[in-house]
Design a protein around this nucleic acid. Structure first.
Lengths: 199, 199
DNA sequence: CTTGAACTTCGATAGTTATCTAATTAGATA
DNA sequence: TATCTAATTAGATAACTATCGAAGTTCAAG
């Protein structure tokens, strides 16, 4: 979630790319056009376009051997809107939306409503194991599957919600949501804990 | 104008700074707080905060020897809004706003209205020397005082408005708006051309 | 005036990346 | 098939910068 935001900033944090976006906003350009306009070599332009394309900001259309590149205004706006939304709101939005699905999520939402403040911080850690489970499942939103997290990062992520990252981290392990080895952590498949796990 | 936008993107294009902004959005933090939360050393935090402060995104308040840092939500929003505004609009905005001041600018605005398209490109180069002056003065918005520009960059900047950068570049020199030496260019003081220069 | 704590500044290092040239792919044309 | 042009890929280099430890600064308190 915050990953794509970072990628977006990185993509725009270069004078050449910023100017390319500006030119493409006015209409289609070939690689040569851009190279001439920016006084750069073609491979360099290709490099920049590849980055912008990887974010879906730029699309290409082939015509013979030349490729016409254009800005995807919609994609740009979609990403930009995420920037505008202030950080505080972003934290608040992590609050689960009210119940909607069927059963389990429904119950989780109710619990979270009581324990999560408007700014996305955890008011307290539920003493009841079952309720604690709901909170922990919610915390797992911050962890992507297939990525490995050093302990420091796990703590940092948790601390955006509650100061006692040590306890919560241990709980995440205990509930089989996170696994750990050599001070590195990673997310376990939801099948491990989403349904069962209350054994 | 585009300078601060680039600076903003650069500032946000770092995972640590992005997280710092997120934390500060929730409230004041000391350097130590942040160092602990991000699992980084204090000098590193200072470094990041300096960057954010240089953009006015973060403010500091001293209390004894500790410094409490906070996010300037207004500044963040101000900068973010500029991001949201699509690139095409940004080009269009380079069109001079309608007359408002007194005399000279007033006249320039009228000329530009005829020669500058909605997307910020130059429809044609005025044949009349006086009108050409208005267009050239407008082009000078893209050049900052005290900076030196290689010829390639001068061309690139001009080409965002018109394909014939060679002619326009020569005109800028002829009108004493730009000076040139060893293929490097720089802006001359406006006193050279804003008032007089029609000699 | 010394000690201690919270920061900042300095200098060095390592990782990243924008840019270039050279080589390669792929489409069009003869 | 051979050739020309547009673009991408590969490899190398140079510039930038996030991070650290060490040294310097500032403030408060004995």
């Amino acid at each position: 979630m915050t990953e794509t935001l970072l990628a977006f900033f990185k993509a725009m944090a270069d004078a050449s790319r910023l100017r390319i976006v500006g030119l493409l906003a006015q209409g289609e350009r070939s690689v040569q056009d851009l190279a001439k306009a920016l006084a750069l070599k073609e491979p360099t332009i290709s490099h920049h376009l590849a980055i912008l394309k990887s974010l879906g900001l730029v699309t290409a259309r082939a015509e013979g051997t030349t490729r016409w590149h254009a800005l995807d205004h919609e994609a740009l706006e979609r990403l930009s809107k995420r920037v505008l939304q202030p950080a505080s709101e972003r934290a608040a939005r992590q609050k689960p939306r009210a119940a909607q699905d069927g059963n389990a999520e429904d119950w989780d939402a109710k619990v979270l409503k009581n324990f999560v403040a408007a700014d996305g911080t955890l008011k307290s850690i539920p003493a009841a194991r079952k309720k604690r489970g709901a909170v922990l499942r919610w915390l797992m939103h911050d962890f992507a599957a297939g990525r490995r997290y050093p302990e420091a990062e796990v703590n940092a992520l948790i601390q955006t919600h509650h100061w006692d990252s040590a306890t919560l981290r241990r709980e995440l392990i205990g509930h089989r949501m996170l696994a750990r080895k050599d001070r590195m952590y990673w997310r376990l498949p939801e099948t491990e804990w989403k349904a069962g796990g209350e054994a």
